[in-house]
Design a protein around this nucleic acid. Sequence first.
DNA 1: ATCCTTGCAAAGCATTTGCAGTCAC
DNA 2: GTGACTGCAAATGCTTTGCAAGGAT
Lengths: 151, 151
Amino acid sequence: MSSTKNEQVLRDALEANGQRFTEQRAAVFGFLASTDTHPTADEVFLAVRRDLPAISLATVYKSLETLVGCGLAVKLTYADQSARYDGRTDPHHHARCISCGRVLDLLGDVSRHEIDGLHSPEGGFTVTGYRLELSGYCADCVPAGSDAPAA
Amino acid sequence: MSSTKNEQVLRDALEANGQRFTEQRAAVFGFLASTDTHPTADEVFLAVRRDLPAISLATVYKSLETLVGCGLAVKLTYADQSARYDGRTDPHHHARCISCGRVLDLLGDVSRHEIDGLHSPEGGFTVTGYRLELSGYCADCVPAGSDAPAA
DNA sequence: ATCCTTGCAAAGCATTTGCAGTCAC
DNA sequence: GTGACTGCAAATGCTTTGCAAGGAT
């Protein structure tokens, strides 16, 4: 996919939300679209600074929130209090390595039937979305002798 | 369930982990066991302070981490950067209200078969656990006219 | 020309840590 | 008595905000 096409996607999304196109936002968006590493804000900052040495961390945070607001990125939150951002917009799930913290994308999905099979004791909960996250060890961190099923 | 029984559970778990029984830990544990509201650390602090006016927030944090380490509580993390703690130790999932932030327990579970159906493109991911969380609107916050399925 | 966005620095918030006194065992 | 725990306060780390200068439409 060409960066030109990506830029147009960004321009359209920004315009639809009444916001302006800037090179900072383009750089953040471009980096997110180019990786599947689910970077933290700081990692985005370090990467984008290679192209825009003057960009500030605050701008990266603002740009990321703008992208999330436009539906061009998803924010993931983890227990180690470092949010990560995902540039993929299609529905998918994640697997997080307990050892190294890496976040992997998962193919496949659980069936809607399974989701509907869950009940709130109080009832009346209206489901608009869900998030599934596996935890375990990635290929590089598997403890020797483990025999748990692999995904 | 009597508080005496709960206290013994706590004593056993602490001893098994080489840690000591204190009234602060007992109060935190007792409060977690008595509620299904998935409180934040600050909420635990405010509640426990009714019984132990001198307890400090730092001790609450330390106690909560101790309980998590002993397997007596589970830590939940959300995007609004406020960790919540769950005193239930049996496997279950959560539904979070987008509007009021309340976290509800869900009955039921997705089948292991569904989990095994997910794949990492890189392969070799060893699954040790997973977390499923629905998002939507609780009974008190359902927008009028909504027709989404309820759980 | 308008008003949104940037970059800087300072503030904010949840959480953690260092340390002396205290307590459980 | 010994080592772990508490409480206080300061520190830490991530994220947000206020504001003047600069940039997009």
